[in-house]
């Protein structure tokens, strides 16, 4: 009955684990950058009712937010090739993450944009700021500032969700775990190690985004 834990059997595969963790970080780095960019476009279209994009983004947001990430991933990786679009596992994983995060960040950033008082924009245009200047300094930056914590949480959620990309054999961290446990037959030790690695990754991503947020998004902080 007494089970003998053997973590040495996991340590022997440290290189695979490190590579997997780096790949997971790479996935979320690309996914978060493109996803939040897409979300910004969606948020602006929806907040300012730019036709016909506001309707398109509304349908897109509802479709993505009400279906599981795993099904979106399978649809892109297995379903799209039937239409002649052949994607390798990394492209499919990144597209799925961008599309998923894009929908959530559309809603998050939209809330930020809608919280900007109209008077701010009127004041800016009475100071003869151009539309581009108003958008950048008066709308986007304060909006991102307001919703940065929510955006950070969503990025972490998407990173954790990316573990299912192992199912289309993208060699990220969970794929490494599956590979290792099939070699050393130490499933529990392997998965608990990898779960803790995800915990550390989540902590790091959160810390990094907080730093990034206070540096670039908040910029010259007035408080």
């Amino acid at each position: 009955m007494a089970y003998h834990f053997d973590f040495i059997a996991v340590w022997e595969y440290r290189e695979q684990l490190a590579t997997g963790a780096l790949h997971t970080l790479g996935l979320i780095a690309v996914g978060a950058t493109l996803g939040v960019s897409l979300g910004t476009l969606g948020a602006v279209s929806r907040a300012w009712k730019i036709k016909p994009f506001d309707k398109i983004f509304t349908v897109y947001v509802e479709a993505i937010r009400n279906t599981p990430f795993l099904v979106q991933l399978f649809f892109i990786f297995f379903g799209l090739p039937a239409l002649g679009v052949k994607l390798d596992e990394w492209t499919a994983a990144i597209i799925a993450m961008v599309v998923n995060l894009g929908a959530y960040s559309t809603e998050i950033i939209r809330a930020g944009i809608q919280a900007i008082p109209r008077g701010q924009i009127e004041a800016a245009s009475s100071l003869a700021m151009t539309r581009a200047q108003i958008f950048r300094h008066i709308v986007l930056r304060p909006a991102l500032q307001k919703v940065w914590p929510a955006l950070t949480s969503q990025v972490v959620i998407v990173m954790l969700g990316s573990s299912v990309c192992s199912q289309i054999s993208a060699t990220e961290l969970t794929y490494a775990a599956n590979f290792i446990q099939s070699r050393n037959f130490r499933a529990f030790e392997t998965y608990i190690t990898v779960a803790l690695m995800y915990l550390v990754l989540a902590f790091c991503v959160r810390w990094l985004l907080n730093k990034f947020g206070s540096h670039f998004v908040n910029g010259r902080k007035t408080t």
Partner: peptide
Amino acid sequence: IELFQGTPLLMQLFLVFFGISLMG
């Protein structure tokens, strides 16, 4: 709470699945 919010659901399912199997 932090453990469950900071790890993938897939890992949690694997751990339950293989963890209970460990007890025979």
